[in-house]
Design a protein around this nucleic acid. Structure first.
Lengths: 116, 116
DNA sequence: CATTACATGTGTCTTTTACATATAGGTAAA
DNA sequence: TTTACCTATATGTAAAAGACACATGTAATG
């Protein structure tokens, strides 16, 4: 819950990094570290936790929402490149619809806050 | 994290019931049970947990964001009526600003999702 | 007088997020 | 040539947030 004296507010969408990475993967197959760098642009203030990001990626793969393959050709350490599956694409669509709902709820709140 | 096979999506704003109850209290002093009934209208799908609601209310009071008094005059069980303080009002303002930010981030996401 | 509605609360488990650390290949400079 | 830094993936664990179950008591209704 909330610790006394720490009522600083951030207003983040739960698990927002999840639809964000699905969207990035829809645009093109990408590896984890690249997602890590691209995500803040989409999520805003949210600094994405790399540990959790890699875990989400593997959980997504377990459920066949993404697939991965090791990329060894390029210079630098080996990269695991992820690609969105059809099911993953569907999950992204669900997220987009759900986020429309969130947006509307926030609008309702703000309208009422501004006394309209 | 996410349990395999359970990728159902809800897209809720973290701790959204908190600004919602502050807003309701700005409109007029209210007791917990009444907030419990009024909140879903503001938060949408979010079914507010009564246990957590009462805990949030007491935590808010601890930090002087609301004050409470027992209402014994009316019929029915005694009610603890909460009232927003000046600091509480300020916290609500912060939430409103932060929610504007969330709204913008969601818009950015959806625009990109729709390929604009 | 039993059931239901009103009203406030505690206990506790799970899920989500945050913070810390491990490992290792590659690049550039001291 | 070794030290430092960047890239890249990953595990361990603590803290915060949310979900679920239950306890307690007053009053109204059938």
């Amino acid at each position: 819950m909330v610790r006394p004296g720490h009522w600083g507010v951030r207003a983040r969408v739960e698990r927002f990094s999840e639809p964000a990475l699905l969207l990035l993967l829809r645009e093109r197959p990408t590896h984890g570290y690249e997602l890590l760098e691209a995500l803040p642009e989409l999520t805003g203030e949210t600094r994405v936790d790399m540990g959790n990001l890699y875990r989400v990626l593997r959980a997504l793969e377990e459920d066949h929402l993404v697939t991965s393959r090791w990329e060894s050709g390029e210079p630098g350490p080996a990269k695991r490149t992820y690609e969105l599956t059809v099911e993953g694409r569907r999950l992204l669509d669900e997220w987009a619809a759900a986020l429309q709902g969130s947006r509307e709820r926030i609008d309702t709140f703000i309208d009422r806050y501004e006394g309209r």
